[in-house]
Amino acid sequence: MKQGGRHPIVAGVTALVAVAVGVGLIVGIGMFVGANILGLGGGGAASDQATDPDAGASLYAPSPKPTKTATGPAITLDASPTSAPEKKAGSVSTSTSSSPSESAAEKPGKKEITLQTGIVVAKPMERIDITGIYPGGEGAILRLERDEGEGWQEFGIPDVSVTGEQFSTAIQTGRVGKHRFRMKDIDTGTFSNVVSVTIG
């Protein structure tokens, strides 16, 4: 009875194993065929890349090549026939530099004080008129200085103001001899020419 009872179980297990093996073979064959069709297999990918080098590539960087150096100007400012010819390297351009006369004309004129006296010979305590012009010195304050051979010293009269670029004052002295006079701008230190008056 025991030996006869095992036959149906063995037969059932054998049938299940046979069915499982068959299903496994079918599934495996299907996956293999599907992988080949979809190109997921290694051989298919290799064959695709052999026929198409760019297949599956996401970025392609070309090999570097040397660039040509431009020999002409990068920017042309004026190509009209009336434009000045291009200067050669090392040449000195005079188009942007001004001549000495033009530079001098553009600079403001130098302020100069011109001094003169009404007389060159006077008696002691005689009135001596001193006048002059000071271009560009409107409103300047001038101081009279005298030199009697011992250096320049203030004469001792009130300072003189420039009005209308002109000035004037008068002096008297009892010292006999030759006197030299000049005017000084007390703000800028500019001096006038020197004038001489002989007292005696």
Rank of each mutant, 00 (worst) to 15 (best):
P135R: 08
E106G: 06
L115Q: 05
I130N: 01
T114R: 07
Y134S: 09
G136F: 04
E138D: 14
A105T: 08
I113W: 01
P108Y: 04
I128A: 00
V120L: 09
K111T: 13
T131R: 05
A105G: 07
I119Y: 12
G132Q: 02
K123F: 08
V121E: 11
V120C: 00
K110L: 07
Y134R: 01
I130Q: 02
Q116R: 13
Q116E: 12
P135A: 15
P108R: 07
G139S: 15
T131S: 13
Y134V: 06
Y134K: 03
I113E: 03
K110Y: 03
I119L: 15
I133Q: 14
A105W: 04
K110N: 00
G132W: 01
G109C: 06
E126Y: 03
P108M: 11
A105H: 05
E138L: 10
G118D: 08
A105I: 01
R127V: 11
I130L: 08
E138N: 14
G139A: 15
I130H: 02
I133N: 15
G109T: 13
T114C: 09
P124W: 13
G109H: 07
Y134A: 06
G109R: 07
L115C: 07
G136I: 07
P124H: 12
G136A: 07
P135M: 13
I128P: 01
M125R: 11
E106C: 00
K107H: 02
V121F: 05
G132H: 02
Q116W: 11
E112N: 14
A105D: 08
I130T: 05
K107Q: 10
G109A: 15
A122F: 03
P108Q: 13
A105L: 10
G137W: 00
L115N: 03
K111I: 15
P124I: 13
K123D: 14
I128R: 00
